[in-house]
C-alpha cells in the first residue's frame, strides 16, 4: 500500500493529540538511538494514553523500548539491540517482558532492517542481502526467503519491505508545515520517516520556515503528519546542543527497573509517568530548573561535560 503525503499548512498540535495518531497494534519505529534523542515525552504520553499491543522495530535502543516494555504496551520486538551498553548493562523491563513471553522476540540486525526500510521507501516488495545465512535469524524470521541470483548465481537472502505504521521522532527544530531539522547523527530517523505511513514528531522548538530552511531540512514536511513543540522532549536522553544525557536519572530508572515490575511501577511509572499529567509536571518531577541547568553545563568545557557522567 502506498503511503500518503501530508500537505496541511499547519500541523502543529499538542502532545496528546500527536499521540492519538498511534493505534493499538501499530508497528512503531522509534527515532533516535541509545542515550540520544529518543522521543521520551511522547512515549510517556503514549503510556498515559494506554495505547498497547505495539510492535517495535529499530536498530540500537535502550530506555525508550525498556520503558514501553515496563508499561506493558509492547507485544513484539524486532529491535537489533536493547540495552544500556557499558553504562548500566542489560535492559531490565525488556528482559523481563521477553523472558515471560509477553513480548514476542523477533530480533533483527541493522542492515537487514535498513534494507527492509529501503524496500518500503522504494515501493519494492523486497531487497536482497548476503548476510544472515548461517545465523539463527533465519529461524526467527520465516518471512525471509532465499533466491539464486539470476546474474551471478550466488544465493541471496530476500528481506521483505517493512513499512512501519508510525515513525515517532524527536527533532531539534520543526516548522508549522512539518519540516524537521535534526542536528548531529540522524541514526535511522530519515529511513523511518521515508518508510512509515505516518510520521509524528516532537521538536525542541518550532521556528519559521525561513529559519528552518537556513538550518537545513532533514525530513521534508510532506512525510510528516503532525508536530508538537516539546522542549526537553528527549529527557532523560540527550538532545545536544540543548542538553546532555541525564545519567543520574537513568541510574535511578535502571535501579527501579532492576528491582522488579511492581517496584518499577510504584517507584518510577507512578512518579514520572502516570503521576505527571503533562510534560511541565514531569520537568518539575525531575528536579526543575536545577536539573535542566546541570544538563546544559556540558557546554562549559570537557571537565564540566565529564562531570555529567559521574
Amino acid at each position: 500500500m502506498n503511503a500518503a503525503v501530508y500537505t496541511q499548512a499547519d500541523k502543529r498540535t499538542d502532545l496528546e493529540t500527536l499521540i492519538g495518531h498511534i493505534r493499538p497494534g501499530d508497528c512503531l519505529a522509534i527515532g533516535g538511538g541509545l542515550s540520544s534523542r529518543e522521543p521520551m515525552a511522547a512515549l510517556r504520553a503514549l503510556i498515559r494514553a494506554g495505547t498497547g499491543d505495539l510492535e517495535l522495530i529499530g536498530s540500537a535502543h535502550g530506555i525508550d523500548v525498556d520503558l514501553l516494555c515496563g508499561a506493558g504496551l509492547v507485544a513484539a520486538s524486532a529491535e537489533s539491540y536493547v540495552g544500556f551498553e557499558q553504562d548500566f548493562g542489560m535492559a531490565p523491563n525488556y528482559r523481563r517482558a521477553c523472558e515471560s513471553g509477553t513480548v514476542a522476540i523477533r530480533d533483527s540486525c541493522c542492515y537487514t532492517l535498513v534494507q527492509q526500510l529501503r524496500a518500503a521507501i522504494a515501493g519494492l516488495p523486497f531487497l536482497p542481502i548476503r548476510s544472515v545465512k548461517g545465523s539463527g535469524f533465519l529461524d526467527l524470521h520465516p518471512e525471509f526467503k532465499t533466491l539464486e541470483c539470476p546474474y551471478t548465481g550466488e544465493e541471496l537472502v530476500l528481506v521483505p519491505a517493512l513499512r512501519p505504521d508510525v515513525a515517532i521522532l524527536h527533532a531539534h527544530y520543526g516548522d508549522a508545515h512539518g519540516n524537521l531539522h535534526i542536528a548531529g547523527p540522524p541514526v535511522a530517523d530519515r529511513l523511518f520517516a521515508r518508510a512509515a505511513r505516518k510520521v509524528i514528531a516532537t521538536v525542541e522548538q518550532i521556528v519559521s520556515t525561513e529559519e528552518l530552511q537556513r538550518l537545513g531540512v532533514t525530513v521534508p514536511y510532506f512525510y510528516v503528519t503532525a508536530v508538537a513543540e516539546v522542549a526537553y522532549g528527549a529527557h532523560p536522553t540527550a538532545c545536544y546542543p540543548f542538553y546532555g544525557y541525564d545519567r543520574p536519572h537513568t541510574a535511578h530508572y535502571h535501579a527501579c527497573a532492576s528491582a522488579g515490575a511492581d517496584r518499577f511501577e510504584a517507584e518510577y511509572l507512578q512518579r514520572f509517568v502516570y503521576g505527571c499529567p503533562d510534560h511541565a509536571a514531569y520537568l518539575e518531577a525531575i528536579g526543575g530548573s536545577a536539573t535542566l541547568e546541570r544538563l546544559a553545563s556540558w557546554k562549559d568545557g570537557p571537565d564540566a561535560w565529564m562531570k555529567l557522567y559521574d
Binding site: 537489533s80 535492559a91 541493522c110 548476510s131
Partner: peptide, 9 residues
C-alpha cells in the same frame, strides 16, 4: 540485548 549489526557485518 541483541547483536546490533553484528550478524550482517
Amino acid at each position: 540485548p541483541g547483536g546490533g549489526g553484528g550478524c550482517n557485518l
